[in-house]
Simulated assay, not measured.
Amino acid sequence: MLIQLAIMGLLAACLPLSVVWVSNDANKYRKLAWVTVFLTFDLVMFGAFTRLTDSGLGCPDWPGCYGHANPLQAHEHISAAEAAMPTGPVTVAKAWIEMIHRYFAMAVGVLIIAMVVIAWRNWRRNRRTPTAEGSGGLAMPLLLFFFVCLQGAFGAWTVTLKLQPVIVTLHLLLGLTLLGLLAWHAARLSRHAPVGQAAAGLKLAAGAGLLLLALQIALGGWVSTNYAALACADFPLCQGTVVPPMDYQHGFTLWRELGKTGAGDYLPFAALTAIHWTHRNFAFVVFAVVGWLAWRAGRVPGLERTARWLGLALALQLITGLSTIFLNWPLAIAVAHNGGAALLLLLLTMLNFKIRLAGRPVSTLSCHAQAAARSIHLPESN
């Protein structure tokens, strides 16, 4: 089974690797980094789809499905489970959704392993050739490999611990951390427009915006993993009042089973209300801070484009968030809302990276990009 799963992961990685191979980009390593960012963003979106369709236990074992590499081979077991519980977590459709998510994750792992291999070969080449000026760095690819392995472990625990909310939420956060690290690494390998010196004054605000967004994403993940999305079905009020009855003690007890309190009792509705209400209201804090940041960054040369995209993504995220309430949580909009959070993370990561370039010479690559281009003996420009 493990060999079959490895083959599936390699097959899933063939298309993105082919895109890199046939690309006209002279720096294939840089192209591989950006393709991995794109695929990881897609994986985050599909992970949200898997969670929101309640497919996390579509295959209740790991890494395969009832001991097999794909749902076709496990069809008999899946059909028996579905017949026993037609509305339960195991159905043929949910099994396929869960396994496609795993194949997708394995493909990302293969791409990151390819990045590590290339970086290691460059590092070895430059050790043998002392006159070489750089390799683009081995530390970041190794860190990415560590994170993808850690993410895989949390994916396994998500299943074996039966969707325990804290594990599922950490699985989401690690996935988005991996996405942010990949974007940062790809940005280090790329050419950027000159950034005005005024950007240096936004360094603290940009870091704070990223931190607040991470906290909001964690709260959103906690809403999703506890199925608290419909605890407040009206807006701007919640259950017809500004401050509804809430149970923070049970709602934010981290180590507990899904739908249960820490003592094993059923989770009260007031706990779900506390989870939803906190996420909803903290969103306005994030909207204000990140909106102000986008406005300020839009006035700094070199940051205008990123700032415009950040403002647009923020507005769309607000729209999708409100739409999930008024339209009773439709699946497509809920997935788009999760994707919007990932997009905001990417844009804030890029904004933080570009702010670090403030005051650098015009029309130059970062030192990391120059080193990477030299190490693979390819030109620095496209």
Rank of each mutant, 00 (worst) to 15 (best):
V35C: 00
A208T: 15
M246K: 00
E380D: 12
A294V: 08
V117G: 04
G175C: 03
E98C: 07
C65M: 07
G64W: 11
A228M: 05
L348P: 02
A13Q: 09
A83R: 07
C232T: 02
K31G: 00
M1W: 04
T349P: 02
V44Q: 07
W96D: 00
L213Q: 05
A107Q: 00
A193P: 05
R128D: 12
T158Y: 06
A153L: 15
G137C: 04
R128V: 13
R305A: 14
G9A: 13
P165T: 05
K203S: 14
M246G: 01
A156S: 11
L178Y: 06
R125G: 01
G298F: 08
V243T: 11
A198L: 08
G175W: 06
A93I: 15
L331R: 06
L351R: 06
L52I: 03
W309M: 11
N126I: 15
F46D: 06
A119R: 00
F284M: 11
A81C: 07
Q164P: 04
H171L: 13
G340L: 09
R51G: 07
H185I: 09
L17R: 00
P330R: 04
H68M: 12
L230H: 08
K354G: 05
F269C: 08
V286I: 08
A93E: 12
A307K: 01
L254S: 02
T87K: 14
N382P: 10
H75E: 15
M45H: 10
A139P: 11
A313Q: 00
R296A: 06
D42R: 13
A33M: 03
T306A: 12
W255S: 04
L43N: 02
T241P: 07
H377R: 12
V168N: 09
A263M: 07
V110S: 01
N126E: 13
W295Y: 13
A371K: 08
T50E: 07
V168D: 09
V19I: 14
G201R: 12
R280Q: 09
A263R: 11
H279D: 02
K28M: 10
A206Y: 04
P86N: 06
I3G: 08
T320L: 10
P141S: 08
W309I: 09
W96T: 06
V117Y: 03
M99Q: 11
L310C: 02
V110H: 02
F46L: 09
W34I: 03
L174M: 14
R125P: 00
P236A: 08
L351N: 04
G262R: 03
P141D: 01
S18F: 12
S375Y: 04
N226S: 11
M115N: 06
Q249F: 11
L314K: 04
V223S: 02
K94Y: 10
N328K: 15
V159R: 01
A206S: 12
E76S: 12
A26Q: 13
V243Y: 09
K31W: 03
G220S: 06
Q370I: 14
A200H: 12
I100W: 07
V335S: 01
A208I: 15
A187P: 05
S323H: 03
A132L: 15
P379N: 04
G136W: 04
N352K: 12
W21F: 08
L43H: 04
L237S: 05
L344Q: 09
G67N: 10
A228V: 09
N226H: 05
F235L: 14
L318G: 12
G209Y: 10
T91H: 01
C232S: 00
L322P: 02
F287E: 07
G311K: 02
